[in-house]
Computed example of a mutant assay.
Amino acid sequence: MTESFVHVAMREYLKKEGWTLVAGEYPGGSDDELYVLSIMDPSVACDNSPDPRRHSEGEIIPDLFAYKAGVMLIIEAKPKYSFDDKEKLRKLLADKYGLLCDALRKFCDERGILSGINFEKIRYVPVLAFGNEQYKVYDEETGFAHIYVKSLSDVKMVFF
């Protein structure tokens, strides 16, 4: 199972479950459905460059953001469970929470989506999405969620 396969399956599952896909990026950096949401310290890009990608020190770009009923999923997807992605999400919420809220607010305001949302008050859930053909439930810390992809049409999400 490839990372692209996991992306396609989780997106279709989330849409069927009523989640609004907010931002994302397919593996390889191309996406014809969503815009990329980059979370970075604005003081890093202090030269008014038209190309902020050149200022990527400390930049975090989660694979997918999805929103529903006061909950924002922040998703990292891989073919298999990734401890590195777990740490990336943990650090994002622990160390860059303010930058995350600011980036989401600006991103949504510029695109006219999720208007009226107080991004400091919603619940953020870090999610690891991965291929899991046996639906083995992994132990996880409270507050995380998993999206298990068995096939394009057989996906489930578990909250911990």
Results as ranks from 00 to 15, higher is better:
40 M>K: 15
136 K>N: 03
60 I>E: 08
91 K>G: 01
129 A>E: 04
98 G>D: 13
36 V>S: 12
80 K>V: 14
89 L>Q: 07
13 Y>C: 02
80 K>F: 10
91 K>V: 05
106 K>D: 14
115 S>Q: 15
159 F>I: 06
81 Y>N: 05
32 D>H: 10
159 F>D: 00
30 S>F: 11
108 C>N: 11
92 L>H: 07
14 L>D: 04
134 Q>D: 15
130 F>R: 01
96 K>S: 14
61 I>M: 10
22 V>Y: 04
49 S>M: 07
50 P>I: 13
15 K>D: 00
137 V>K: 08
39 I>G: 09
23 A>G: 11
94 A>C: 02
8 V>R: 12
117 I>M: 06
34 L>T: 07
38 S>G: 04
137 V>I: 12
43 S>L: 12
48 N>E: 11
9 A>D: 05
49 S>C: 15
127 V>Q: 03
144 F>D: 01
53 R>D: 13
115 S>W: 01
99 L>G: 06
112 G>Q: 05
153 S>K: 14
128 L>M: 14
13 Y>M: 09
152 L>E: 13
80 K>Y: 12
102 D>A: 15
78 K>G: 07
93 L>S: 05
115 S>V: 06
91 K>N: 15
49 S>Q: 06
68 K>T: 00
11 R>N: 08
127 V>Y: 03
83 F>K: 14
80 K>P: 00
101 C>W: 01
99 L>K: 10
52 P>K: 09
64 L>P: 02
160 F>E: 01
118 N>D: 15
69 A>S: 13
144 F>H: 05
71 V>N: 05
121 K>W: 00
12 E>M: 08
153 S>H: 12
5 F>N: 09
139 D>Y: 01
140 E>C: 07
72 M>L: 15
74 I>T: 14
8 V>S: 11
72 M>D: 01
41 D>I: 03
61 I>P: 00
53 R>V: 11
3 E>S: 09
82 S>D: 10
40 M>R: 15
110 E>C: 07
67 Y>K: 03
134 Q>I: 01
107 F>S: 08
46 C>G: 09
50 P>Q: 03
139 D>I: 00
96 K>T: 00
7 H>T: 03
34 L>C: 08
74 I>M: 02
35 Y>F: 12
60 I>L: 15
10 M>K: 07
10 M>S: 10
125 V>T: 12
112 G>S: 07
105 R>F: 10
106 K>S: 13
51 D>R: 13
88 K>D: 05
126 P>N: 05
50 P>K: 08
5 F>S: 11
159 F>P: 00
152 L>Q: 14
114 L>F: 04
150 K>C: 13
158 V>W: 00
35 Y>L: 12
32 D>W: 09
111 R>C: 08
58 G>F: 07
97 Y>A: 09
123 R>E: 11
87 E>A: 08
131 G>N: 09
6 V>C: 11
132 N>L: 01
9 A>H: 06
89 L>A: 03
12 E>Y: 02
152 L>C: 02
49 S>G: 06
